[in-house]
Write a protein that binds this DNA or RNA. Sequence first.
DNA 1: ATAGCTAAGGTCAGTAAAAGTCAAAAAGGA
DNA 2: TCCTTTTTGACTTTTACTGACCTTAGCTAT
Lengths: 154, 154
Amino acid sequence: MDNISDLIERYLKKLLADSSKEYIEVQRSDLAVRFSCVPSQINYVLTTRFSAGHGYFVESRRGSGGYIRIVKLQLDQRADLILDLCAIVGDSISQSDAEGLISRLHEEKFISLREARLMQAAVDGNTLRLSMPVRGDQLRAIILKAMVISILRS
Amino acid sequence: MDNISDLIERYLKKLLADSSKEYIEVQRSDLAVRFSCVPSQINYVLTTRFSAGHGYFVESRRGSGGYIRIVKLQLDQRADLILDLCAIVGDSISQSDAEGLISRLHEEKFISLREARLMQAAVDGNTLRLSMPVRGDQLRAIILKAMVISILRS
DNA sequence: ATAGCTAAGGTCAGTAAAAGTCAAAAAGGA
DNA sequence: TCCTTTTTGACTTTTACTGACCTTAGCTAT
C-alpha cells in the first residue's frame, strides 16, 4: 500500500512545502540511495506525479554538479487563471492529470473538498469509460473545462 | 446459507466496524488467499454487497502496491432521498430533467449553489453533445449519478 | 585548446505485481 | 424445472520497478 513511488512523492512534496522558495533542487542519485531504488525510478515518479497537468515544472541539468529542479507553479499568480487552466487541460487529459489538477485547485482553496469530489466523480475513468470506450480523454477534457469555467467565473 | 461471499461480506464489515477510520484498505489477492477463492470473487462481493445503494463507496488502484479501499458512507435519513433520486435517473436522462433534479438537490439544501452550477456544467447539453452526438442522455445519466453519489461522501 | 575522463541525469523497453472484466459453469431455491 | 445467485478461470489493463545503454557537462592533464 505504501509503494516506493508514493514515499518519494510525499518526500518531495514535503520538501516543497517546507521550502521558502517555490522550487527545490535535488540530486537523482541521492534520492535513489535514500530510497534504495534505481535512479530511473526517480524519473518515473517525476513523470507520473509532477507533470504539468499536476501543476509542476521540472528542469534538470546533467554532468557534474547536475541537479533536478522541481518548480511548483503558483496558480494564484496567474493573470487569467481560467484561460491558463483550460490551456493546461487542452483537448485531452488523462485521469491522473485531471486528478492532479483538481486536487491542486482544492489545495489552493479555489474549490472545497466537496466540489473537488464532485469534479473527480464527473471525470472518473470508470464513469467515462462506461459510456465511451474510446476518446475518454477528450471527453474528460471537455467536461473538466466546462466545470472549471463554471466554478471560477463569478 | 454460509456461502463464501457471505463470509467475505461479514469479514469486511467487521473490519470496517473495528476500524478507527471510516474506511478500510485491503488487497484483493490477500482476501482471495484468506478465503480460498479466486480473486475475481472479491469483485463479485464488492459489486453485490458494497454498492452505493448499500451505502458504500469503493475505490481501487492497480499495479504493485495496489489496494481496494472501501468507504462506508455515513447515511442519514436524507440519504434515502438522494439514492431515490439517483434511481430515478436510471440509464438515461434529458437535460431538462437533469436540471430539475439538480435544482431540487439545491432546494433541499443537499448542495450549494456553486455545487449546483458545477453539476449543471458537467451535464450541460452543449458540453456533452460536443463529444457525443448520440447517446448524450445516457452519458448524462452516468455522470450525474456519479456526482450524486459523490455528495454522499462527507 | 582539447582529448579524454568522470559524474551527473535521460530513455526506453521489458518484467512483475497488482486489480478488472466477462461469460460460462455450478449450485441453490421456489 | 427454471430462474437467480455464486463460483470459476481465462484474458486484459494499469501501475510500479529494473537495468542496459545513452547524453551532457565539467574537469584535468597534456
